[in-house]
Simulated assay, not measured.
Amino acid sequence: MPAVSIELTQWQDSWTRDFEELAELIRGAAGPSVVRVDHIGSTSVPGMTAKDVIDVQVIVRRLPDQQLEDGLLAAGFTRSPGAHELRDHVPESWEGDPSAWDKRVFRPPADTRPGNVHVRIAGRPNERYALLFREFLTADPRTRAAWALFKQRLAAAVGDLNPYGQIKDPASDVLMAAAERWASETGWHPPAETPPGY
């Protein structure tokens, strides 16, 4: 697999607007298949260092969802190739069926800003994982700063997106163990239904 350089940048106010524009495009293309569209990943955490790529989570009732896939493809989205785009990293602590972490990944149309559209099933652990990551790092500035520093040092050490991701996945599981403690202490849980206005 060819090397892909890593470019991290300081958090930008424009990322929120970029997400909203991409989410509107997704809702218009995918129609009623969409339960919810979330801004996830580091660009969704104010103050976090991140790659200038918007990560979006699209929640659906089932996979595959032909209506959603047909709608996105017709609107210029493309399927991201590779088996790693069909299932999220499964944490070592997970004791259930690995298929609970299944997903689909699309890329936005070529004339829009770079992004990753992760399509996941409502109520599955990968939906929770993505949202808890965002909420925990938003709420905890010390952990947010430490995670940003870790990413910067990792990017400088490996210089290639492929090993960067392979190392970051298990490190994320350590981070998420702390996030689960925070969720238990605060009573946080992911949204149970579609927010008003969707």
Rank of each mutant, 00 (worst) to 15 (best):
D52V: 02
H89Q: 02
I59N: 00
K103Q: 14
P125F: 08
T43Y: 04
D111M: 02
W101T: 08
A83L: 14
V58Q: 11
F77R: 07
A177M: 09
T186K: 06
T78W: 00
W101H: 11
V90H: 06
V53W: 01
L63W: 06
G76C: 07
R87M: 14
T143Y: 01
Y198G: 00
F150Q: 10
D18Y: 02
Y164Q: 13
P163N: 07
R144P: 00
V90R: 04
D13E: 15
E21Q: 15
P109W: 06
R120N: 04
R134Q: 13
P64L: 00
G197A: 08
R113L: 15
R107C: 10
V158I: 13
H84M: 13
I26R: 07
A178S: 13
L131E: 04
Y198N: 01
A23V: 07
G123F: 06
L137M: 10
P190F: 10
R107F: 12
G76W: 07
R36H: 15
R153L: 05
V90S: 08
T143S: 10
A29L: 09
E20M: 12
T143D: 05
Y164K: 13
E193V: 05
S93T: 13
P141W: 07
Y164I: 12
H39Q: 12
T194Y: 01
I54G: 03
N162I: 15
G115W: 10
S44V: 03
A148P: 06
V174I: 12
P191T: 01
S93F: 12
Y198E: 11
S5V: 15
K168Y: 06
R87V: 12
L72Q: 08
K51S: 06
F19M: 08
V58K: 11
V34Q: 01
R124A: 14
Q66G: 01
A192F: 01
D173F: 09
S93W: 14
F19W: 05
D65F: 01
A130F: 10
I40Q: 10
V37W: 03
R134W: 01
R104N: 05
P64N: 00
A29T: 07
D173W: 09
W101S: 07
